[in-house]
Amino acid sequence: MRNFLRAIKGRAYPRVVGALREPSWMFWDTFLPLLSISAYVFVYRALHAPKEFEGFVIIGGIMTAYWLSVLWGMASQFYWEKETGNLQQYLMAPAPLESILAGMALGGMFATTVRVVAILILGTLIFQVEMTVSNLPLLILIFIITLFALYSMGMMFASLFLLWGREAWVMSTLFQEPIYFLSGQNFPVKALGPIVAAIASIIPLTLGLDAMRQLIFPQSLPWALMSPWIELIFLSLLSVIFLILAIIFLKKMEWIGKTKGTILTRWL
């Protein structure tokens, strides 16, 4: 248990320090995402949309930052670590791989949160978006569970992407714009119709965004997919399922590595 916790701390450490040590990352991750957020806000302005829609864009932009962190900082990470030679050291270390993944998740969450806070403050100030939180404890709970579900999904993908090799990059790219659309990044997902919205709900981002929109912008209630409480239950279920799958795939990946001996082979 001590090793488990030490490994979490050890893997989270470079991300926490790296987030603050590399100024260029800080710049690219905070100021520049505001550009695409601003563009979408201006699209709504050009269409004379109600003011709360601009708020949807900001909330969507924030959650997208976490999604990108999950894709590039979790799902693709084992593959990247293999290419740079760190993975074999993780495998040899006297700590379970689950703790390495947990450390990456915690470090990734921290690094992304630093940027997200900046994006939230700047975005709200620049566009004068009014947020009326109707139930703060529920909002915080949903936010935390959404992150937990998202990073559990990232942990699950980490093993899969490693097995898929080069296709990992392809999958990460593929999981961007189409997922932004399916999860209702900038618009209420209910607009996609009940069937598509239900299928899209397998992505924690979809339910998390829908619930947060309802709790921050009460005017958006007619666009709600379902009650935030129900979405909280689904998100909790998704968290547990993804976590279990992550552990199963991790074992599977280790087994394949031991039997085939190709898991550490680079350029595959």
Partner: peptide
């Protein structure tokens, strides 16, 4: 994504 924004 843009079409959905336009639609809503």
């Amino acid at each position: 994504l843009l079409l959905a924004m336009y639609y809503v």
